[in-house]
């Protein structure tokens, strides 16, 4: 029965993982955090990544008409590449009305982006299945 902590723990076990969080993108609230934060403050990081996630989730450019019948978020994930790392934002689809995503910060040298993207998507699904 994976909860928030188990989910973050698994995310942190991925190669190159430096920090992870579950964030609400409407309010910018961090529901849970693990590991380090890029700016030393998990709550500030959550507020910033939430703005990015909200833009992606709401802009019509990222909401293709073909997905209009699907009531979940039109965007699956976001990848931001910096000089030293990767940031993966994976949207969590809940059956009640919510706005939550998983954020994983990976080291650029030791992280495996393809693997992490796949696993984070699975974690986002399992988080709500119970």
């Amino acid at each position: 029965m994976p909860g928030i902590d188990a989910c973050l723990h698994e995310a942190m076990n991925l190669p190159g993982a430096r920090g992870a969080a579950i964030v609400d993108w409407t309010s910018g609230l961090a529901l849970g955090t693990a590991g380090e934060s890029p700016n030393g403050d998990h709550e500030a990081t959550a507020a910033e990544t939430a703005e990015l996630a909200r833009a992606a989730a709401e802009y019509t450019a990222f909401a293709p008409a073909a997905a209009a019948g699907h009531k979940g978020p039109p965007v699956e994930d976001l990848i931001v590449t910096t000089r030293t790392g990767y940031h993966l934002l994976s949207f969590v689809e809940t059956t009640f009305d919510s706005s939550v995503f998983l954020h994983l910060w990976l080291d650029r040298d030791t992280g495996n982006l393809a693997l992490a993207r796949l696993r984070l998507g699975q974690l986002a699904e399992r988080l709500v299945l119970g």
């Binding site: 029965m1 909860g3 609230l29 969590v92 059956t95 009640f96 988080l127 709500v128 119970g130």
Partner: peptide
């Protein structure tokens, strides 16, 4: 959660949302 009505993560997400 135990009766299978709700996932553990789902309950936590919903409950934290309501709490804050």
């Amino acid at each position: 959660v135990d009766s299978g009505r709700l996932g553990g993560g789902e309950l936590e997400i919903c409950h934290l949302g309501a709490l804050f």
